[in-house]
Structures are given as C-alpha cells and as structure tokens.
Design a protein around this nucleic acid. Structure first.
Length: 198
DNA sequence: CGTATTTGACCGGCGC
DNA sequence: GCGCCGGTCAAATACG
C-alpha cells in the first residue's frame, strides 16, 4: 500500500525513526546554496531561489491535465501547462519495472523552483544517468538516481524554456535512509546551529 | 585508480 | 508494422 499523497513530506511526520536531519522540514525548502561544481560561474551572481510551485502526482496513467495540482499562483499559466504536459508524458513509462506484477503506480512529485542554478542540493547524493532533449524546450532534462545502496529514488530536473528562471525538479520514490551528505551541506550546518543554540 | 559524468544506443509504449 | 518519444543503459571519458 502506498500513500500517494504528501509523500514527499512524510519525513516531517517523524513517526518512526528518521535521522534528525531528515525530520527537519527545512530539508526541502532550504535547497541548495553551495557547491555546484560546473555551474559555479552562475553562482557568482545569483544564488537566491524560491519554491514557486509544488505538484503532486502519483504516476498513474493520466489523460487530462487536471490531475496535477500547482499550489502557487506565481507560476505563470503558460509554464504551468507546459510542465503538466511534460510530466504526463514522463509518467507514461517507468511505471512497472518488476515483471509479473500489475501496473505499479509510482508517486511522483514535482517542485517548481525559481533558481539560477540547475542542481538543487537537497542533501542526498545523486548520480546522473541520463540527459534528454525536451520537446518545445531549449533546455535538456537531466535524470538522476540516488546513490545510496538499495535506494532507487529518482529525480529529473528540467528548466522551463519560456521562463529560464524556473527549474522543475520531479522526485520519484521515497528515501528510506538518512541524508548522507558531507559537512559542506547547508542543511547539516543549519541543524548543527539549531542544536547548539538551545 | 576508483568513481562520477557524458552521450549515443537501445528499449518499450503508443499512435497512426 | 513503423516511427516517434520518453526513459534507461553502458562504454567511453573525465575527474579527484
């Protein structure tokens, strides 16, 4: 049984035993501030970013676009529809890897983030495994997989061509392990500060 | 030298 | 059946 609602934020419920770093709700909103290797030239002039949209999707086959919920008005209608379109296509495949099983609906959750940098550091380690050109979009879409052993959380990152200040990050699956990033993580530093200040 | 990324090939689903 | 498309694989390459 899968919870197909609010899954991304399930860590915040802190029910079982997630590590302290993962419990913090700021995990997602305080996305990356540092270390973007090859994009460092862009970092120089603008690092600020804000989440401008949040979309939930549960990976079933969809036909219309009303199955997506964009919870922010700042998102322009044009970019919103394009995003919806792309995600509909994205959800078509990649559903059932297992053989002999019925269609598994894979929860997908998309963030729309206003950022100058493409790589949003959410605290996990990702390995890039693909890059594809997106139709009607001058920017490619990047595919990443979580490098933690046994964890196949995937995410894809793309930038909207009509508004290149917006980056869309789509997560698929759920991490069942602690955030494993080294000490240069903003996240980690924040947690440390909170620990020391009480 | 071990690990991560790049990038063209490949695959399966879908529409025609 | 064929071609297109989104997604993934994996050999080659880059990188530390």
């Amino acid at each position: 049984m899968e919870n197909n609602n609010g899954e991304m934020f399930s860590y915040t419920s802190s029910s079982t035993s997630p590590p302290p770093a993962a419990v913090n709700c700021s995990s997602y909103l305080s996305l990356n501030m540092m270390n973007n290797d090859e994009y460092s030239h862009m970092n120089n002039y603008s690092k600020q970013q804000q989440v401008v949209g949040f979309i939930e999707k549960d990976g079933q086959m969809y036909e219309s676009s009303d199955d997506m919920v964009v919870t922010d008005q700042q998102v322009s209608p044009t970019s919103g529809s394009q995003l919806t379109d792309d995600l509909n296509m994205a959800s078509r495949k990649s559903s059932s890897i297992r053989k002999g099983e019925k269609k598994i609906r894979k929860p997908k959750h998309a963030f729309q983030t206003r950022s100058q940098v493409d790589i949003l550091d959410d605290g996990y380690r990702w390995r890039k495994y693909g890059q594809k050109a997106v139709k009607n979009n001058k920017f490619p879409r990047n595919y990443y997989r979580c490098t933690y052993q046994g964890c196949n959380v995937k995410k894809q990152v793309q930038r909207l061509s009509n508004d290149d200040g917006v980056v869309v990050t789509t997560y698929e699956g759920m991490h069942s392990h602690p955030i494993e990033k080294s000490t240069d993580n903003f996240e980690h530093i924040l947690t440390q500060m909170q620990l020391y200040s009480r």
